[in-house]
Design a protein around this nucleic acid. Structure first.
Lengths: 259, 259
DNA sequence: AGTCATCACTCGTAAGGACAAGTGACGTCT
DNA sequence: AGACGTCACTTGTCCTTACGAGTGATGACT
């Protein structure tokens, strides 16, 4: 290491030096970084040290490494898709998902029967092991290449009350909303948002690059009856998508807290 | 490696074996994993290979490593705080932030003068380098230990029109909302949500563990005039916090798209 | 001219050794 | 009994060496 000795570990000094160089603009977004061999010579350190530094920057999401080609500065790029999470209705009363147009289904969805887990049971205000319909979709946005995993869960009890719902649990959510409305429900939704690192299967299914978290949404449809009607889950790579909400002031007192 | 040879790299096989063992419940959340030495003996591989495998699991957020103590299974814990992102008003019309009660300010906030960047300028529908007031806060929730970074940005032009706003730009957002309302504005908000890996300074400020993304919110306050009034940014570790929104159907046609 | 082998470059994987540094318990000394 | 040093354990850092594997250009062969 030819330079500073400050922050501690050698590889961190190297990482910091490269990070500075990038942020200073010495390496433009998309441009290749020096190869490992060059970094070894530049900073007079061994290869593991260089690789350790590169790994750190990779974990930060600052660079991207391609086998056989080199390391490249990641464009600090904004997400290319904004998912508008509002629910709109046409003048005839039909539901329109603002982003419904851009999503394409990769495969024909096939509904299945399953049961609530502790997590999904809590969101649906049911116990564990309660029967429900499920339907998974892999959505893609051809324009941006964004992928997302969508899951619809409908409790048996709810499906039984809405005949058409039980016959075709593979419908898109907007259809289910319409059926529920025709059954006399006035709908509203609660949505929770989390971010976490993807599991290995999510990484491959969503084709995520390194150091890319996913946004994990859970939307619960509420009707006029007390209990939740539908649970939808959406998982999407945070490198590609951002969410948009609209908020208006309401008069209800604040409640809710968990922990 | 004493077992399977399938997926490719040795360290990935080791990582997969450990991952399986964890998910199978062989190691309970919070329990210590075998030490590196034990893993070396168990799988008959070298130390770098074991460390590589452990590093992979760490990047997945599955385990946590403490220097001098060992590796531990991370509790797949749900976030301990749910941030209700609604805006409520009391019967007198005052604004109440649902989570305002739990947040504590670590230091006295000091407002400053700054300028829009391309990112903040776009959200405020201003150009770059436009003058504005800024005020940063480090929020903490003593009960859960959750930390968050909050920033308020108010364009000069807006502050000039609302006298009290310009005199005390360090007020909490609810106060600013109140002043805007008294100036005749009927408020609504648009909020965008992103997730990304933290920068080094965010990691330390928010005291984030490894492989923990942050949720990055941008809330824009809109009034009766056409232009945005306030921009608030909130950054919080996704291991501790989740977001909650309430959605009602509206009749506006879908718009918006970026990319 | 077109096809394909080769080569030089890149990063990925794996092993081995050595020492530093954090942690906690045990045992000795005061 | 209490304080403190030591020691055995843990992970962290760093080096050397070697080979495997993906990529693209060069050049020879057909």
């Amino acid at each position: 290491m030819t330079e500073i000795q400050r922050p501690g570990a050698l590889y961190q000094q190297v990482a910091a030096a490269i990070r500075e160089a990038i942020l200073k603009g010495e390496f433009a977004p998309g441009a290749p970084l020096p190869s490992e061999a060059q970094l070894i010579e530049r900073y007079k350190v061994s290869r593991p040290t260089v690789r350790n530094a590169v790994a750190a920057l990779r974990a930060e999401g600052l660079i991207e490494v391609r086998h056989g080609k080199g390391s490249f500065v990641r464009s600090d790029g904004q997400p290319s898709v904004t998912l508008d999470r509002r629910v709109s209705r046409t003048s005839e009363g039909r539901f329109v998902m603002p982003n419904g147009a851009v999503w394409d289904e990769a495969e024909e969805p096939t509904p299945y029967r399953s049961h609530t887990t502790t997590a999904t049971g809590q969101l649906l205000e049911l116990g564990a092991e309660e029967a429900l319909f499920g339907c998974d979709r892999l959505l893609t946005d051809p324009a941006s290449g964004t992928r997302a995993m969508h899951r619809t869960l409908i409790p048996f009890e709810v499906a039984e009350e809405i005949p058409l719902l039980a016959e075709a649990p593979d419908q898109r959510p907007a259809s289910a909303y319409w059926l529920l409305t025709q059954a006399g429900h006035k709908l509203w939704w609660s949505e929770t948002v989390r971010a976490r690192m993807p599991l290995p299967d999510e990484r491959t299914a969503l084709q995520l690059p390194d150091a890319t978290p996913i946004l994990h949404l859970a939307r619960v449809t509420h009707g006029t009856s007390g209990r939740p009607l539908i649970l939808e889950e959406l998982r999407v790579g945070a490198d590609r998508a951002e969410l948009a909400y609209r908020i208006t002031a309401d008069k209800e007192p604040a409640r809710r807290a968990r922990g």
